[in-house]
């Protein structure tokens, strides 16, 4: 990642100075600086796809719902997240590293701890159409923080089309669902357009999907392993 390497060079000197500090003040900063040598010197390893064994182990260690996510633009790195909290229609999935993806009936509505997170969405119209496997035009908003910490709303107009049925077989899930595609165009005419795809069960649950989560994260593939 270019971003990473640039930061590495820039921070090397700062880190060299700061690492030798000691004391009981500013614990958070010291901790923050101590993780730098790894960030600076470790070689990036190509992420390996999760094995069937790892997936079975994850499913065996809990009875809660488990999801597999793949971040396409980050070397297709895969993460397993488990349901940790439900609030109304929203289910928060997380891992011990406190990376979090929030789903609403299988649709990603926000993320945390990934960097460049999708802070929240206005997805009511989109999800209603997707669940109903209905064609038509809907509006959809994604909210992000800028590096300046200002909330930025990206507004899209999405056109939904439906496709054929596809079988879903992953983890403990054996089902079939209909393909729904949402072609979304940025209202500002500048932000990148994207196309999301969902495999939707007969009850409206999204078994798997490919969703755009903004320019920093890119596309994320989701797959339920246990509902």
């Amino acid at each position: 990642m270019t971003r990473r390497s640039i930061t590495r060079i820039g921070l090397a000197l700062t880190a060299a100075l700061a690492l030798v500090s000691c004391g009981n003040a500013n614990k958070d900063t010291t901790a923050l600086l101590k993780q730098l040598p790894k960030a600076i010197f470790s070689k990036k390893q190509a992420p390996k796809p999760l094995t069937a064994q790892q997936i079975a182990q994850a499913l065996g260690s809990t009875t809660d719902s488990v999801y597999l996510f793949e971040l396409e633009s980050r070397g297709k790195v895969q993460v397993l997240l488990q349901d940790i909290q439900r609030n109304g229609p929203y289910q928060t999935y997380g891992n011990p590293a406190r990376q979090v993806i929030v789903l609403r009936d299988g649709m990603i509505t926000s993320t945390r701890g990934l960097g460049g997170d999708l802070m929240s969405s206005e997805e009511d119209q989109l999800i209603a159409y997707v669940k109903a496997r209905r064609e038509g035009r809907v509006s959809y908003d994604q909210r992000f923080l800028t590096p300046e910490d200002v909330t930025e709303v990206r507004r899209y107009s999405c056109y939904l089309t439906t496709g054929g049925n596809v079988p879903v077989a992953a983890g403990l899930v054996r089902a079939s669902g209909q393909l729904v595609t949402a072609k979304c165009t940025a209202a500002d005419g500048v932000s990148r357009d994207f196309t999301n795809a969902y495999v939707v069960g007969s009850d409206g649950y999204i078994y798997s999907g490919r969703q755009w989560l903004g320019s920093y994260i890119g596309y994320v593939n989701s797959q339920v392993l246990r509902r």
């Binding site: 609030n87 928060t92 590293a97 945390r112 701890g113 990934l114 960097g115 460049g116 997170d117 590096p147």
Partner: peptide, 17 residues
């Protein structure tokens, strides 16, 4: 305005219960 990772990379807070 554009320096750094948007929103930061720190772990998530706990969800509301």
């Amino acid at each position: 305005k554009t320096l750094g990772v948007p929103g930061g990379t720190e772990p998530s807070g706990l969800p509301v219960a």
